[in-house]
Amino acid sequence: MVNHTPGIPSSYGINSQSFFSFMEPNSLIVFVHGFGGSALGTWNNFSTMLLLDPLFVKTDILFYGYDTLKGQAGDHAAELYAFLCLAENPLASGILPADMGLAERTYNRIVIVAHSLGAILARQVLLLAYHSGVSWMDKTNLALFAPAHQGANIISLATQALPGIMNLLGIFVKFRYPILSDLDPTTPNGIIDQIRSQTEHLQNSGRGEFTKAKLVVYAKGDKVVRNIQYLGDVPAKVVPGESHIGVCKPNDIYNKPFELLKSLF
């Protein structure tokens, strides 16, 4: 019933972790958190549920982390892109240690699961992949929880995404979060605008199938992001009784996020 390695730490990002299947995998899932989140913490029981579900025995699972209090969204997207290029062949790139005795992977499918700000990173990564002509772009799907790809109410985000005492203090000590400016829908010519116009162009010209999210989930009445249809994405699923932060955190009682992700497989 345990079909994956323990979490293997990665030198890419912050506290990124990889769980590799002991079997020959055909899929890769990459989780990308949002503002104030962390590689695994954002996703609560997702890791356990995936690792123990027979559906994912042949799936490698990567949780990517980055420091949302430093750098711009564009910086993190570029680093995530570089990471994914390496993650496509994890053995060769050393993300999967050779001592594990596992074979190199050949993925038929890559799913990027992103939350909030992570959705901006994920979309930007796909555009970078398109411009670079990498092979994995066409087999990549997006699954987005409370995506902030149309901007966010950053004050609400700062207070909702940073519930802990440490992060409240983070605000106090005058950290400047350039990334919050990236999320501000009123910032002209920001990354949000850029992504949208490029995505729209690709979709209109029939080359943007890969940019259409296959799963979009919002918390009903989310106070941080607005549920507005994003170009050719699938219509959003709405989950009542959850918050912007809680919508992607499955637990024993609330397993909707996990069930929705399973529906993609």
Partner: peptide, 19 residues
């Protein structure tokens, strides 16, 4: 035996230690 909660907790425990 087959206690997924225990095994899942072990994974998270190791992650927290690493942090």
């Amino acid at each position: 035996e087959d206690n997924s909660a225990a095994i899942g907790a072990y994974h998270i425990f190791m992650t927290l230690n690493r942090i």
